[in-house]
Design a protein around this nucleic acid. Structure first.
Lengths: 198, 198
DNA sequence: GTCTATAGATAGATAGAC
DNA sequence: GTCTATCTATCTATAGAC
């Protein structure tokens, strides 16, 4: 099965390119990264890279799909938590993310760029928020039905603020990876919610 | 005092260029904006613009200084609030920012880019966070001394979470300028703090 | 203070050989 | 599947005329 020339089998180059793009987009953003740099890091020529991804936008899509897949696997492994357990699942996600600054950088920078309507990641950004807000909303409602969360808790505000805390901590953490614990801060916030709305 | 050729008096072109840069950086970020586009929007040639700002970085510095000046004027007008009054001052700032999506876009995008150490705005980003955290920390400590805020309130966490909520709401709001009220969400969060730590 | 002209680098993308 | 070569556009910045 050995190849006669320099090509890698099947998906190998593609996967390597996605990983290189993740790392570069994470530090320089999408706009700030050239496909030439991704190609170099992958170990391909620019055209070699463009064989796998016909355009830079296609490369971005692959990167975002990869990110979704990783986070999806993690959340799916925790089932469908309801009530406060959903906040604990988010805490677990924060703990995990705290060990992967690259994924954080990617998220923070691509979301910041992608809030602009014309940006190639705009649709992904919208869907990302819709997804996490749906997840949290359903969990809070379920918690209210089971009586674990007070019925008069303002669901929308609770959800929006929680997502805001997550995003804000991530951004702030990038500036101080060593001295700030996203997980500790988020846990304290969740305790605040619990004490108020249990 | 009429000028014989096409030049504007003194600072006029410069100010106009800064305003154009604010608007373009706000929507496309710093990296995503070319000085040519800023020049066009200003009504100058590219070289005409570079007469006022010898480099793109210099233009960015002017933009950030302008932003600081505006926010500084606003906060200074409110004196040096202590205790919960500081959170009310922040609420007022949020209300004001809710009417200026451009300033929000500028902040969100430049901060996201600028968390990277090599970025020309990196120093500004660090100082921005240091400033707001100092402001809030002092206010909370003062509130504790006056007895308005419980002595066992975790100051650091309180400060970090509050800043995170601010940043997260801003980012999220850019995606839904019409349907989301940053001010309402932030007010609800402050109420949560007040009920827990008063 | 503003312009034209231009330099030199780099951008994203395509054609065609192997 | 990967390469070299090339295209065209755009980028930041400088030189020098008016």
């Amino acid at each position: 099965m050995a190849k006669s020339r320099g090509e890698l089998s099947g998906e190998a180059s593609r996967a390597k390119a996605v990983q290189a793009a993740v790392e570069l987009f994470a530090t320089s953003g999408y706009q700030g990264t050239s496909i030439a740099r991704v190609a170099e890091k992958t170990g391909l020529s620019q055209s070699g890279l463009l064989h796998h991804f016909p355009s830079k936008t296609a490369l971005l899509s692959a990167v975002l799909a990869e990110r979704d897949a990783e986070d999806g696997r993690f959340l799916a492994a925790q089932g469908k938590p309801a009530g406060w357990a959903a906040f604990d699942a988010l805490t677990a996600l924060v703990v995990r993310n705290g060990t992967r600054p690259q994924l954080m950088g990617l998220f923070v920078r691509v979301v910041a760029e992608g809030t602009e309507p014309g940006h190639p990641a705009h649709r992904w950004v919208r869907e990302h928020y819709a997804g996490i807000e749906r997840f949290l909303t359903e969990a809070v409602r379920a918690g209210q039905e089971s009586g674990e969360i007070r019925a008069d808790a303002p669901v929308g505000t609770l959800v929006h603020t929680t997502v805001a805390v997550l995003d804000g901590l991530q951004q702030r953490w990038l500036l101080d990876t060593d001295r700030l614990s996203m997980a500790d801060e988020f846990r304290a916030y969740v305790e605040l919610l619990r004490s108020r709305w249990s």
